[in-house]
Amino acid sequence: MLTRRRFLESIALGSAAAGLGTLPAFAEDYPTKGIELVVSYGAGGGTDLVARAFADQAKKHLPQAIGVVNKTGGSGAIGFSDVMIARPDGYKIGMGTVELTMLPHMGLARFTIDDFTPICRLNAEPAAITVKDDAPWKTIEEFLDYAKANPGKVRIGNSGTGAIWHIAMAALATKLGTEFNHIPYEGANPAVTALLGGHIEAVGVSPPEVSSQVLAGKLRMLAVVGDKRAKGFDNVPTLKEKGIDLSVYTWRGIVVPKKVPQPIVDILRKAAKATADEPGFKEALEKMNLTWAYADGPEFRKQMEHDNAFFKETMTRLGIAK
């Protein structure tokens, strides 16, 4: 029998969880039914592929299957919002991407990173500066010198205004004390196409997005905007090696709504770690040219907080933040 007080309590809890009597019964039983993994970007894209590879490999480490659901639109805001407002019972989890730390500053989202509990990071890619094979710049120094001497002349393609690679290159311009002519495209692919056609001077997208063209000798990667050199491009220096302290990463990982109880978070973290360590998962990422970059929840949270502050500052300076 419920006492009146406990009844009221459970109503209060229940309304927070949007439904009475459906509270996660006992966390130690979790999961007792299928888990929904919300992907905020389209089926077949990079984020979706990581999610599907993860869901596939997680079968071995969770008693219930993870189903991938794509909720696209609003530059990702729709899917992220869907995760944010989900009942915090651990049955709706989300693929969190770097946009979680960017959209809130652009006035495009009602959430902030504090609405999510990070489970783990799965993948991360740095920015890179790539030019055409017949471009006059053979090294990053030559390129940067030219950019400094000719402010506003260098046209750099990015994956959209306010998107990660735009911010990365804008931050670079600030570091150099120069200006680029940023050309936004509908994603990284069209930007690379424009570079191949010689319509722009450089692109600032990640190494996997240009790797096939670089290996074929059509494009030349001059530098990686990360903490260490990119796998497969060991001869390409990082900007840090050249004395420019800048590193910008895009990342993908698993997040859950803030209110998910700690026991469930722990179960998910354990399962996610085991899944990320599966050879099958690493192999899937490798096939997609993506870099495996597992990081546990607390470490992942640090990166989210760091990036959140970085983007807020950079975007405000660029006048993109609202």
Binding site: S212, K218, A284
Partner: peptide, 16 residues
């Protein structure tokens, strides 16, 4: 999307 499919198969579409 097919580009992704090819990449997954270890085939890099492109000049090579």
């Amino acid at each position: 999307v097919m580009l992704g499919a090819l990449t997954l198969q270890g085939l890099q579409p492109g000049p090579l």
